[in-house]
Design a binder for these strands. Structure first.
Lengths: 293, 293
DNA sequence: GTCGAACTGAAATATACGTTACAGGGACGG
DNA sequence: CCGTCCCTGTAACGTATATTTCAGTTCGAC
C-alpha cells in the first residue's frame, strides 16, 4: 500500500515524463503490437480513457480478447503493471481536468493584474461550487446564536481575515472575541472555553501546528469549531464540527485568500439575513452611537 | 462492460438515474453523515473525483479515516458497493468528457453563496479593468524599494486588509510597519514620517475622518501615499500620489473587500516578481529560520 | 454522575483481481 | 506434409482489496 508510491514512480519506466499524451503514445507504438493486442489498444483509444479504468478482465472482454493479452499490451507500452498503467491514466485525467481556468475570457496574454484576477475568479467559482450548503447553513446558525460566545483565530497570513470577520460580527452580536497575540497566550482563552463556545478557525497550507494544537484542546473541551480552510483541508478538519473549504491557488509565491474572504463575507451577510430586523435595528443604533446622538 | 450489465444495474440502487451530479448529491447528503464520514466526503469533494478512484484504503488514509468509514459513507450515499460507487464516478467523468465546456451556465441554483460569489466576481472583473496600469506599476516600484520605510493603515473594516498586506510584505523587505491602535495613537508615527516614507492607506465608504486627517498630515510632511479605495474614491485621493480603486458593491449591508484583496495580492505578487531572486532567497532564508536551522 | 446509543478502527474473512505458467492452435518456411 | 515459432486463451496461483465483525470509546440524554 504505502510502498506502491515509490514502486509506481520507479516502475513507470519507458514513458514517464514525456509530454506526449498516452493516447498519442499508443498510436505510435501500435505497430509493435500483435493483432489481438492491437484490438485491445484500439478499444482503449475508442473509449479513452475509461476503458482502461476497468479491470483488465472487463477491458479484455470489451475488446474481445483475454485479460493476459491486455496485460501484455500494457507491458509493451512500458508500464510495469496494470496498476501503474491506471495510475498514469488517472494522472493524465486529473491534469486535463484542472485546465478550465483559461476559459474566463480568451485573453491569453494580459498583464499580472489580469492573470491574478482570472485566478481569483476561478477560485471564487470553485469555492462557491464546493462549499456544502448544509455546512454553510449550519455555520450561520451557530454564528447567529447570540448566546454562544464566539472566538475567531487564524494563522500567520489568515489571522487578518479572522480580524476582518470579527470586526463585522461585533456589530451584529455580543461576545465576539478575536484571539490575538502570541500562540502561547492563546491558551489562556481555553480556560473559559466549553461546550457552549463556538470557535471560527482559519488555517490554510502550510498548516500551523499551534493552531492545530489549539483546535484539539478546544474540541476536547467541547467547543464547536467552524474551520475555514483550503481545498486540501487542514488537519483541524479532524476535530472541526463544520468545514468550509476555499480554493486558493494563485500565480504567486503565496496562495490567494479571496476564497476565504468570499466565505467570510457570505457568512456575515447570511447572519444578517438570519437575524432579520434585529440586525438592522442594531446597525442603526450603532450608527447613532457613532454620531454621538 | 457489456457483461457486467446485470450486476451493475442491479447494484447501483438508490441513486441511479437522477440528473444531479454526484458531487451535488454528496453535498446534499452531508448532513446525514457522521463526523468522520463527513471528513471522507470532504476529501472526495476536494479532490473530485480522483480521490474516489483510489482504493478504499488509500482514500481513507488521504482523508485521515479508516477504510470501513469510507465504505460506510459510500453505503449511505446509496451505493451497494465500493465498486458500484467507482463505476458511478467513471460514468459521470465520461459524461463530462463528452460535453466540451458546458460549464458556464445551466445552473439554476442561485442561493446566497452563489449570489455573493457572482457579485464578487463582477467586482474583480471591474477592478482589474479599471485599475490604471501606470498607477499599479508605480505602486509596485515604491513598495519594492527597500530603502523607503513602509507604513500601512486602514479603516474600521479595512484595517485587517492592511494587516494582511503587511504580513506578506514583512517577508519581502524590512521597515514594514502596520499602524495599529487608536486613531489618536496614529499620530505618534507622524513624528518620524518624511519624504522618504511610503504609506499604503485603505479607505472605503463610509470614509473615515481620522484616516483623512492622518493622510493630509502625512502628505504635508512629504510622504508618498498609495491609496487603495472604492470606485467612488475616498477624499484621500486628493493627497495621494497613487490611487488604486476597487469595485465593492455586494448583496449585503456591507461592501465586499474582495476587490481590495485582489489589488493587495496582485501588488505583493508583482513585488516578488520585481525583486526576482532576491525575494526567493529571502523566502528560503526565512523558512530555514522558522524551522530552527 | 450514570446509562444507553452511536461512532470508529483493528482485525478477521471472503472475494476479486492481477499475474504467471502452460498448452492448444495457426502460419509460415522447409 | 511436417516442424518450428509465435500468438493466444485457459487455468491455477498468490496477493491485494472490499467487506464484515466486534470491541473500545465517545458523546449526549436523563
Amino acid at each position: 500500500m504505502g510502498s506502491s508510491e515509490t514502486d509506481a514512480s520507479k516502475k513507470r519506466a519507458g514513458n514517464a515524463g514525456n509530454g506526449a499524451s498516452l493516447a498519442e503514445q499508443i498510436r505510435r507504438d501500435l505497430g509493435r503490437l500483435t493483432p489481438n493486442e492491437r484490438r485491445a489498444a484500439h478499444r482503449l483509444l475508442a473509449d479513452f480513457p475509461m476503458a482502461g479504468l476497468d479491470t483488465a478482465a472487463r477491458f479484455g472482454e470489451a475488446a474481445g480478447v483475454s485479460a493476459p493479452t491486455v496485460l501484455r499490451m500494457i507491458a509493451k507500452l512500458g508500464f510495469a503493471s496494470y496498476g501503474a498503467f491506471q495510475d498514469g491514466l488517472k494522472q493524465e485525467l486529473a491534469a486535463q481536468r484542472e485546465t478550465p481556468l483559461t476559459k474566463g475570457g480568451a485573453r491569453p496574454k494580459g498583464d499580472a493584474l489580469d492573470a491574478f484576477a482570472l485566478a481569483a475568479i476561478a477560485n471564487l467559482r470553485a469555492t462557491a461550487e464546493n462549499v456544502s450548503r448544509e455546512e454553510f447553513d449550519a455555520a450561520v446558525r451557530l454564528i447567529a446564536d447570540k448566546r454562544r460566545p464566539l472566538h475567531l483565530l487564524g494563522g500567520r497570513f489568515t489571522d487578518p481575515i479572522a480580524a476582518y470577520m470579527a470586526a463585522h460580527l461585533r456589530v451584529l452580536r455580543p461576545h465576539v472575541q478575536h484571539i490575538e497575540g502570541q500562540p502561547t497566550a492563546w491558551f489562556d482563552r481555553l480556560l473559559d472555553i466549553g461546550k457552549a463556545d463556538v470557535i471560527v478557525l482559519f488555517d490554510i497550507r502550510r498548516y500551523s501546528d499551534d493552531l492545530i494544537a489549539f483546535a484539539e484542546r478546544a474540541a476536547r473541551q467541547g467547543a464547536r469549531i467552524i474551520l475555514i480552510t483550503d481545498q486540501w483541508l487542514s488537519p483541524i478538519s479532524k476535530v472541526a464540527r463544520h468545514v468550509l473549504p476555499a480554493h486558493v491557488p494563485a500565480p504567486s509565491v503565496w496562495d490567494s485568500s479571496a476564497g476565504l474572504l468570499l466565505i467570510v463575507e457570505a457568512l456575515t451577510a447570511a447572519v444578517v439575513a438570519a437575524q432579520g430586523d434585529v440586525a438592522r435595528d442594531r446597525l442603526e443604533a450603532l450608527e447613532r452611537l457613532r454620531r454621538g446622538d
